[in-house]
């Protein structure tokens, strides 16, 4: 999946302790880092955090739609992953696992009585990316804004399923396990979410076809 934060494209050293971090940490394989982290090496785990923080944040904020809540979810997800690291199978990819933890936390938050979805502050809202041409750019920008609104209008449960499938590319089985629902529920929620988004985007969906844009070839 694409790194979500286009504002922070570079891998940074800030927030860590460059003097103490292993100099080759950035080059280490994920499995090696995880093995070190399982052995109690906090700096190895910190490197894992650096590698996945954008992805986990994206998963969280797409579900909860608030930066402060997403921030809590992200930190909590990494803490829980760290606590459960001893049981993690190093042969499996870390990304889907941490995203599942984050999604579960995010959905639980949204379901909780204290949750009040207020939407992201303006400065944190989505920003347009570079468009291939001015004309297409206008259409795409409008469509994106419409899609963002439609996603906010989904129920948290629908949004979580959609995020885990479309952004994190989890299987239905993985989504079902993450959210503790049946595969049939995953299927129906996802279908309803997609249908609502499709209806919301209907005015714009003719354009991609004319342009020959492809989206259904997965």
């Amino acid at each position: 999946m694409d790194a979500p934060s286009r504002a922070d494209p570079s891998r940074d050293q800030a927030g860590g302790a460059p003097g103490r971090a292993a100099p080759d940490a950035a080059d280490a394989t994920e499995a090696a880092l995880l093995a070190q982290a399982q052995g109690g090496n906090l700096f190895a785990f910190e490197e894992i955090v650096k590698r996945y923080q954008r992805r986990v944040y994206a998963t969280a904020v797409r579900i909860v739609h608030r930066h402060d809540v997403a921030d809590d979810v992200v930190q909590e997800a990494f803490l829980r992953a760290h606590q459960a690291l001893g049981r993690f199978d190093l042969a499996r990819p870390f990304g889907p696992w941490i995203c599942r933890i984050a999604a579960n936390l995010a959905v639980n938050h949204v379901r909780s009585p204290v949750s009040r979805e207020e939407g992201l502050p303006e400065a944190h809202a989505e920003t347009a990316s570079a468009a291939p041409s001015p004309l297409v750019g206008v259409l795409d920008a409008e469509a994106r804004a419409q899609l963002a609104r439609a996603m906010e209008a989904l129920s948290a449960d629908q949004r979580a399923v959609f995020v885990l499938r479309v952004f994190d590319e989890l299987s239905y089985k993985e989504i079902a396990e993450s959210l503790e629902i049946s595969i049939g529920t995953v299927m129906s929620r996802l279908a309803r979410a997609r249908e609502r988004l499709r209806v919301a985007l209907a005015p714009y969906l003719a354009a991609p076809r004319v342009r020959g844009a492809e989206g259904g070839d997965r």
Partner: peptide
């Protein structure tokens, strides 16, 4: 159209406050 919705959704960027990931 469902595929186009997915594709467009994937293009939605997410931006955290500056300095957050540091």
């Amino acid at each position: 159209e469902l595929g186009a919705v997915d594709a467009l959704a994937r293009e939605l960027p997410v931006q955290a406050p500056p300095g957050y990931f540091e």
